[in-house]
Design a binder for these strands. Structure first.
Lengths: 125, 125, 125, 125
DNA sequence: GTGGTCTAGACCACG
DNA sequence: GTGGTCTAGACCACC
């Protein structure tokens, strides 16, 4: 399901975290659906169980999944992001944007790219 | 000039690198202007000279500044970005964007924000 | 494996960088093969680990190797060189060549030498 | 006469040394012709006299120029390079060549480039 | 004075 | 155990 790239500079646990987020975003995982067990997931990704555990823990801290003792991990319904998180994302966005403009990318080209990404994402929701 | 955040997960040298990039982008540092010396800057940031040195080296590798032995470091005029760099920036952009949409931010709100940032940056150029 | 010459004007980390490049070029190190760990290599070269680290970082920046945190450094398959790199190499070539001719070396002798080197290298590829 | 590039990573004195070598190679400076005085040359290059002095010293060490006390510096006739120097140049050549081939440059393209450079240089001699 | 290199040794993140 | 970051302090080359 999730593709891991060891050449990527991001740590594996972060790639898994991101991968699950995307699966939820694109609707492959629905609200209250159960996630694979840590062990199974670790096997299928040929990764250390600790690494999967860490990804789940991160997602839980972000309220994106919730865990039920003795049962497993489930997709959470309320994707309530704190105001701080949203602000951070906007900051990251503007930083990257400024850099692109600095490197001479065309305004219209960027905007059309952005529009396409947003529309695609919203449709999948 | 530059604020360092030791709680930030990004390494110090990267924060310095980015800080200088932003100073150049917003026009605070002009072409061929001399940057603070490695030692002075290190003192004013209360950081090891090696760390500043590293930031300068990174910027030089990106062709954003050039260094002259025995003279100092200067802002370079031609900020020629490789294709790989641009692609990376677009990828970062789309990733952040998807997350924002995921958290329920309104499409129009995001787009107007993006448009403002781009316009602001282009004007300062 | 690699011989360091402290009398050489080139810095140690550059000698290491180039040494590894040559090992890859001549096929002693194959794609996805793991390089010696930073610490081990430092010991075997009787050099500071930071120096080896720096060499590895340079190679990574050139896309010749990739590093996986907690695992090690590995030979990368795609050695995509930027246009700038190629141009630099051609410049270096013509500079050295002019000097050789200046010192009275025979044209045919040089060309046959060059031809041999290229053929040898291509065969090993 | 000589163009200095402060963005070049090579030190200024080396650029001057190389520049004079090229002037001799292309025939602009002939055997036993007098070179500009250190002071004049320094002024015309807007450079520290010590730097020009150093370039002259290097050239003298290579037997490319000779100095006459109280008179000045003159182009030497015998460009006798030691065997060691020639070997070094051949080594540099083969190293750069291998790298070019490694990066996928075409054999014929390289050879035609090399041939052109050599022919050009020999004609100017 | 400037940048550049190297060492020694500490600490953290990752798997 | 792996790579990555940072500090402290020394030494060299350049102008």
């Amino acid at each position: 399901m999730i593709k891991l790239d060891y050449k990527d500079s991001r740590p594996i646990h972060e790639q898994i975290t991101q991968g699950i987020k995307e699966l939820i975003m694109c609707g492959a995982l629905k609200v209250d659906e159960q996630l694979p067990s840590v062990r199974d997931f670790a096997v299928s990704l040929t990764v250390n169980p600790n690494t999967v555990q860490r990804a789940y823990k991160n997602l839980e801290a972000e309220n994106i999944i919730y865990s039920v003792k003795g049962k497993g991990n489930f997709v959470s319904g309320d994707s309530n992001a704190s105001h701080a998180t949203i602000t951070k994302l906007y900051d990251a966005l503007s930083g990257t944007l400024r850099e692109l403009v600095f490197y001479g990318e065309d305004k219209e080209k960027i905007l059309s790219f952005l529009d396409r990404i947003i529309t695609e994402t919203e449709e999948r929701k």
